[in-house]
Design a protein around this nucleic acid. Structure first.
Lengths: 128, 128
DNA sequence: ATTACATATTAATGTGTGTTCATATGATAA
DNA sequence: TTATCATATGAACACACATTAATATGTAAT
């Protein structure tokens, strides 16, 4: 969980770190230098975490076809309205979907084209 | 009073489904027809779920720089060897990483270019 | 053989998270 | 106002999951 380990020492010898030993000191140093900051790593993981749920993937796939209101999504997924609303809240907090209100009805849609591309890339991997 | 724009259908009737009501029957039918099967949805969600973890994203980012052995990954992430091995197992089960053995040492690397592209797409979204 | 090392696995624990029930907004119409 | 509908939110439960400790493989050297 902590992000950095100390690897600055002597030459090509193995060094004790967190009860393990470093074998390739140079590779490790290079990779360490190229690693993004901790905050960015967490943001990335949180972003993908949103996609990692059956219900949310279904919602996103549906919205990639057409904008939809909450109660139609409930019917499509055969799920309780509160369950769908909870997931839509997560999706909108991550700026993955946007919404517009028309009277009592709220219409949701994908936030941008990135989302569609992420879905398609994932599908390619799954289908190969 | 506000004249409705956008998706709407004069001949629609509301219908009871799972304690909710369908507002846009045609939209619903169209989206329903375009939805992938249940198995494919689950596969997609499971694929993204693997990316939705801080430790695994760090591993993938590291491997996108260079193939690495387990104990160097431990040092890089400052984590216990068993924790890293557990995550590597998940990553390899999803065919996201591959490995090769050289004596006692096992080297892991990204399985294909899809993975790198998924990471980069996610980063774009997070950084904007 | 035995020793040492790199990695994998099992079992248990604690935390995170998706769904449900109940209730609260917000909006329109009577 | 009151009533109804569409959606949002809060709390609680149940399950999934990441980490740990301990142990088990597998490989090479002595």
């Amino acid at each position: 969980m902590p992000s950095k380990a100390g690897i600055q020492n002597e030459t090509e010898e193995t060094v004790e770190v967190c009860s393990a030993r470093i074998i390739h000191r140079e590779t490790l140093a290079a990779v360490q230098a190229a690693m993004p900051g901790d905050a960015r790593i967490c943001d990335l993981a949180d972003f993908f975490k949103i996609f990692g749920d059956r219900t949310r993937i279904s919602i996103l796939w549906a919205l990639s076809e057409s904008e939809m209101c909450v109660c139609d999504l409930c019917a499509l997924l055969d799920m309780k309205q509160s369950a769908v609303s909870h997931q839509l809240k997560l999706l909108k907090q991550s700026r993955i979907v946007k919404y517009r209100r028309e009277g009592k009805v709220v219409y949701y849609s994908l936030d941008d084209e990135h989302i569609r591309r992420v879905l398609n890339l994932g599908l390619q991997h799954v289908c190969e």
